[in-house]
Simulated scan of single mutants.
Amino acid sequence: MIKESLFAAEEREAKLDCLGDMLQVMEQHVDFKALAAEVDQVAPRRERGGRPPFPTELMVRALILQNLYGLSDEQMEYQVLDRLSFQRFLGLRRSSQIPDRTTFWTFRERLTVAKAGDALFEAVHRQLAQHGYIARGGHMMDASLVPVPRQHVTKEERQLIKQQAMPVGWKLAQRRQKDTEATWTQKQGKSTFGYKVSVSADRRYKLIRKVKVSTASEHDTLHLEDVLDHANTSRDLDGDKGYVDGSREHRLKARGWRVHIQHKAQKGKPLSACQERRNTRIARVRARVEHVFATLAQMGGKRLQCIGLDRATFQLTGKAATYNLRRLCSLRTCS
């Protein structure tokens, strides 16, 4: 016989705490009011009458939930209505008002237009420093392709897009659904349409320190200097074969950087045994950055459902900030 209780909700919340609700751990270590204040400063709300908007802190929390679990706006609306841990995290346990899918989209667009992704990422970075997690041990560099839905265009239309022109035959509805900024690239014989995210993570804590988002066709090596973290306590820099550039390596070494980039074999010139051993030593160090991308993939960061470089930049930067918050919880729990 099923036992009923007037205190069933409280009993379930207590059991969630015993099982280890990561959202409650995040609640203990993250200052969401400070994040909301940063968002309001960079992307202030516009009062237009009608129903008052939901508090910025609630919406920042919702954005973190979306990034943490890789949820679309429709899925987010359903989960907030259905899921106890989400309601508790958002402070909506006993509320009759729940944000809908349009509310989530509107808030994200507000931040995207204001280019608030970098400000939010830096606000998270400051909280990491307050907890004592400053960048240590050197840099681990890597990049990953992020696909978006493929575009069906003719050869003539593709040529116009490359010239940054809009085909005359496209209706307004078509223009809204066509991503004219994403590009094609090939990696290991596989074609990908979308964008690329380059990151620098510190070796000590595996926290993302710098992020750069570009179209997929831009080469990894173009972004290495953009994601260097000059605040890191070490000048060591580890990267794979995609970052080979002799002139840049000499320039960085002249500035005091200790550059550890894997050697790349050329056609007809295989690597020597010494070079192979060096590549293995570097691989053992930079393998830790693969853990970062594996976690981002678990959070739904290996695919985007958006159109345009600005939206891709905001969503991937926000995903990196959320990864850092998740990593902070793991570090605090283990310490």
Rank of each mutant, 00 (worst) to 15 (best):
E4Q: 04
S5L: 14
R12P: 03
E13N: 05
D21Q: 09
L23M: 10
V25T: 06
V30F: 13
K33S: 11
D40F: 01
Q41E: 15
Q41N: 06
R51Q: 13
R51V: 15
P55N: 10
T56R: 01
E57A: 09
V60C: 14
A62D: 01
G70C: 09
D73M: 02
D73A: 06
E74W: 04
V80N: 00
L81A: 12
L81G: 10
S85M: 15
P99D: 04
W105V: 04
T106A: 07
E109W: 03
L111H: 01
V113I: 10
A114V: 07
A116F: 00
A116Y: 00
L120T: 02
H125A: 15
Q127N: 09
L128W: 05
A129D: 10
G138H: 00
P147Y: 08
Q151T: 10
T154G: 15
T154Q: 15
E157F: 06
L160K: 13
I161T: 10
I161C: 13
L172S: 13
A173G: 06
D179E: 15
T180S: 15
W184I: 02
Q186H: 05
Y195H: 11
V197E: 01
S198E: 14
A201S: 12
Y205P: 03
Y205L: 10
K206F: 13
I208C: 07
I208S: 00
K210P: 00
V211F: 03
K212V: 07
H219F: 14
L224R: 08
L224P: 03
V227I: 15
D229G: 01
A231C: 06
G239N: 05
D240M: 03
G242K: 04
Y243W: 06
V244M: 07
S247Y: 08
L252D: 04
L252I: 09
K253C: 14
K253Y: 09
V259L: 10
L271R: 12
S272R: 08
E276G: 15
R277E: 14
R278Y: 12
N279I: 08
V289R: 01
E290Y: 06
V292R: 00
V292W: 03
M299F: 15
G300Y: 03
G301Y: 01
D310K: 12
D310Q: 13
D310Y: 05
T317F: 05
Y323D: 06
Y323V: 01
Y323G: 02
N324H: 04
L325S: 01
L325P: 01
R326S: 11
R327K: 15
C334L: 12
C334P: 01
S335N: 08
